[in-house]
């Protein structure tokens, strides 16, 4: 009898999972935008990356980002060279990745169009260093799909062992503001 009970439990679980899988959708992009901005009294530095990849899985709300560091475009070519060569060392650490999940995914209703505030937590790996991060963001829902995601947050360079030499410390902020803007498509469509 006990075996029977367990069997039923397992079967039900499997059934639930399989329905979930059937309904699961993935929202993805390969041309998302991430920008960062550093401001000091001496100089403002801004860079944009238009080749960010990201996937959001509607099953459980897992979300990942992959960013090619050499994809950041600066206003000044020399800044771009220094960024890759000296600060983030792109040859050794070509990508930054984030893997995590939307913590309050259950509260996101796909039925209603509009913007929803969410909290994302996970692990950000950059310059060979991983840190746990928790940030607020906004999802845009339209016609039962996540069509956009946006978040603005700060990163402390030291947390990722990105060293700024004393000679240019006045030009580069210790903290940079990161803006993430994704426009998702439904995967497979």
């Amino acid at each position: 009898m006990l075996i029977m009970k367990n069997l039923i439990l397992i079967l039900t679980t499997l059934a639930i999972f399989s329905t979930l899988t059937v309904d699961a959708q993935k929202f993805y992009t390969r041309d998302g935008q991430i920008s960062f901005f550093s401001s000091t009294p001496v100089e403002d530095i801004k860079a944009d990356n238009y080749q960010v990849s990201s996937v959001l899985n509607s099953e459980g709300g897992a979300i990942v980002f992959s960013v090619l560091m050499k994809g950041f475009e600066f206003e000044k070519a020399l800044m771009q060279e220094h960024f890759n060569e000296k600060y983030v060392e792109s040859d050794e650490y070509p990508k930054a990745t984030f893997k995590g999940a939307i913590a309050d995914w259950e509260n996101v209703s796909m039925e209603e169009d509009g913007e929803v505030e969410v909290t994302v937590n996970g692990s950000l790996n950059m310059h060979g260093v991983s840190n746990k991060v928790e940030q607020k963001g906004t999802l845009t829902i339209k016609d039962g799909a996540v069509v956009a995601a946006k978040s603005v947050f700060n990163i402390v360079l030291e947390d990722y062992e990105i060293k700024i030499p004393a000679l240019v410390r006045e030009n580069i902020g210790e903290e940079v503001e990161v803006t993430v803007e994704m426009e998702y498509k439904i995967y497979g469509n």
Partner: peptide, 26 residues
Amino acid sequence: FQLTAQDDLLDMLDEGQEETTDYTIA
């Protein structure tokens, strides 16, 4: 399951990615 799911998602991103040319700088 959750963690592997995230790794799978990252792999998914890598898979579809065209190989790019990485030019040497500096």
